[in-house]
């Protein structure tokens, strides 16, 4: 425990030092930049609402990624899985034949989960059947889904008259997920994130599935001897991750943007990968770290306006956190060996 807190303090020092150096190199006021991020993320109840809106899809994606990481798979295709989930959900929401939102929204939710899951399954099949490493299969599929969503936004689903990067037409107001009174957070989003989190915890820590995934992740050949077929579990874990990503995509269109935009995934898939790495591939620290990452994302939005800095600073801090954590982990492993 003592060691852990020492590590955390060292990590925070490393990140603060590196970020300050980067800010100095850009000729920016260091203190003001940090202050702006803080005020821009947790400074008012409206900002906190925005942070939670980032936090919710991030947690859902990260939970999905825990399954693939447990099986030692690098599900880089998660970005595409979010996009496909959003597209799948949107396809249902655009149906004119059903007008009852209490029927349409759950249908869209299921469609998003299924398309996301299938897209994940495709990357899994490329690995198990095609001999393609999941990183490259996933990347290829990310590019495909990126092209697909652009085609939809500029082609068949374009706004009447003008097609633009700003996306499709807004959804009808009754298809927006209802929000907490006074807040702009969808209640359904909070509930879904909570359920996904609990289910992931149960499945990974308390069920045979979690144990088997772990066995495969650590030694696929030995797992085979225990009559666990790696192929089936690879596919299952990546489909689960895809389904989670699909849910995140659904929330992006029904709770946040209320339309389809080219950048509908908002990079949450890659951010989720970083997040899970920083959490040491464990579920416990996820919510708190997700809140931290989401705060950085939202807090950096106003940097260009107030300080004329690029909002990519949040990504710099997030990446630096993960590398510092890895660095400290490596140092410790080395020390223990001596």
């Amino acid at each position: 425990m003592k060691q852990l807190s020492a590590d955390i303090v060292l990590g925070i020092l490393l990140v603060l030092t590196f970020t300050s150096l980067v800010l100095l190199a850009a000729g920016a006021p260091v203190f003001a930049a940090f202050q702006n991020i803080w005020l821009g993320s947790f400074g008012s109840s409206m900002k906190i609402g925005q942070v939670l809106n980032v936090c919710i899809p991030l947690i859902i994606c990260s939970c999905g990624l825990l399954f693939t990481f447990r099986a030692n798979l690098w599900n880089i295709g998660i970005e595409g899985q979010i996009i496909m989930g959003a597209i799948g959900g949107m396809a249902v929401l655009r149906m004119d034949s059903i007008s009852n939102p209490t029927l349409l929204l759950p249908l869209a939710f299921i469609a998003a989960m299924v398309t996301g899951g299938l897209w994940g399954l495709l990357a899994g099949l490329l690995k198990t059947r095609g001999g393609v490493h999941e990183i490259f299969g996933g990347l290829g599929l990310n590019f495909v889904s990126q092209g697909f969503i652009l085609w939809l936004i500029f082609g068949p689903w374009k706004r009447p008259g003008i097609a633009s990067m700003s996306g499709t037409e807004l959804l009808k107001h009754k298809l927006w997920l209802s929000t907490l009174p006074g807040w702009r957070i969808a209640i359904a989003g909070l509930v879904i994130a909570g359920i996904v989190f609990l289910l992931t915890w149960l499945l990974l820590e308390k069920s045979r599935l979690g144990l088997k995934l772990k066995a495969i992740g650590q030694n696929p050949r030995a797992a085979l001897l225990y009559d666990i077929s790696p192929e089936g579990y690879y596919l299952l874990s990546i489909a689960l991750a895809g389904a989670c990503a699909g849910m995140a995509g659904f929330l992006q269109i029904t709770a946040v943007y209320h339309r389809l935009i080219p950048n509908i995934s908002s990079g949450y898939g890659y951010l989720g990968l970083l997040l899970v790495m920083l959490a040491g591939y464990r579920i416990g620290p996820l919510p708190l770290l997700a809140l931290f990452f989401a705060g950085l994302n939202v807090g950096a939005i106003q940097l260009p306006i107030v300080l004329q800095l690029d909002s990519a600073l949040s990504g710099v801090i997030q990446g630096c956190c993960v590398l510092s954590a890895l660095f400290i982990l490596g140092l410790e492993k080395k020390r223990r060996q001596k």
């Binding site: 850009a26 970083l274 630096c320 590398l323």
Partner: peptide
């Protein structure tokens, strides 16, 4: 893989930030 992936995202954002 972990080091490379994290560094990849870090470098991209560092480039956008410093190159502004």
């Amino acid at each position: 893989v972990a080091v490379g992936f994290a560094l990849s995202l870090l470098c991209r954002d560092l480039a956008y930030f410093l190159g502004n």
